[in-house]
Amino acid sequence: MLKYAFRRILGMIPMLFLISIIVFTLAKLMPGDSLSGEIDPRNTNPQYIQEMREKLGYNDPLPQQYFRWIGNFVQGDFGKSTRFKIEVSEVLSERLPNTIMLGLTSIIITYILAFFMGTYSGRKPYTFGDNLIGGLNYLGLSIPSFVAGVFAIFLFSFTLGWFPSNGSVDIGTTEGTLEYWLSRFHHVLLPALVLGLLSTASYTQFLRNDIIENSRKDFVRTARAKGTPERKIYNVHILRNSVIPLITFLGFDLVAIISGAIITETIFTYPGLGQLFLQSVGTRDYPVLMTLTMLFSFLTLVGNLIADILYGVVDPRIRLD
């Protein structure tokens, strides 16, 4: 298992290298550069701009620029944000905990909801409860998250006033206190629900269908022939088979959450990496943008690896070596 993980991680290196070339090329292909953010606005003398370009290395051949960037990158120097005028790593580390909090909350809510709804529906298919859950899920699947987000803000924040509509914490709470954490949780709940909407709906339907399918399998008949009670057959024999794929989805969730966070965080003006990403596109903050893209790509690869490793852990039929 360890050997397998190690080999896979080694295999990521050329992958990431390729991605970095693409990211760099795309950044260079995009219109404009971040020079406008770097120069002193009081001095727009073309001569001066030309000097700055030369000084910042924007006139060097592309491969040279690339290797300078990647060389610094692997040493942990991601450059300076042209917008915030501070180190990219500093910008990211301010936002990262927020996104982690959002992602974790979203995953936990998703799995709890999907587990209970899915097992209920799978055990009692075609009943009123199942149809109700099924109907809600198809609604969840068909509504795009930005619509759901706006609607949730309108209903739960503006109309009912249950949840705040923006930010990650109330201003004026002291960091570390219970009040602070409660406020953070209060802020994260609504975006987390919206972010997990799609996965909740699809995992519920997946679990339901998998339980129904497994309940028709021969091994269920064997368990019944042994005199095993119905309840145990569902809770142990069938469920243990049906949660396997669900657990492996965890790895892919990582990917889904990152792409989902870009939209959800923006709608909820939640200061996380997703919101930062869109903002950086708007302000042409290429150092931040490139670092984020690299980070997201890296997490995608890690997510896939996690999915595969989890498969090996939970399914005795899969051997990783």
């Binding site: 399998k217 008949r221 022939a225 399914d315």
Partner: peptide
């Protein structure tokens, strides 16, 4: 079932639960 009357099935390949 399983105590006084037992049964063996036609399909040995699928009659056991793969994850136990």
């Amino acid at each position: 079932r399983g105590k006084d009357v037992s049964m063996i099935f036609q399909e040995p390949m699928t009659s056991l639960n793969p994850v136990f």
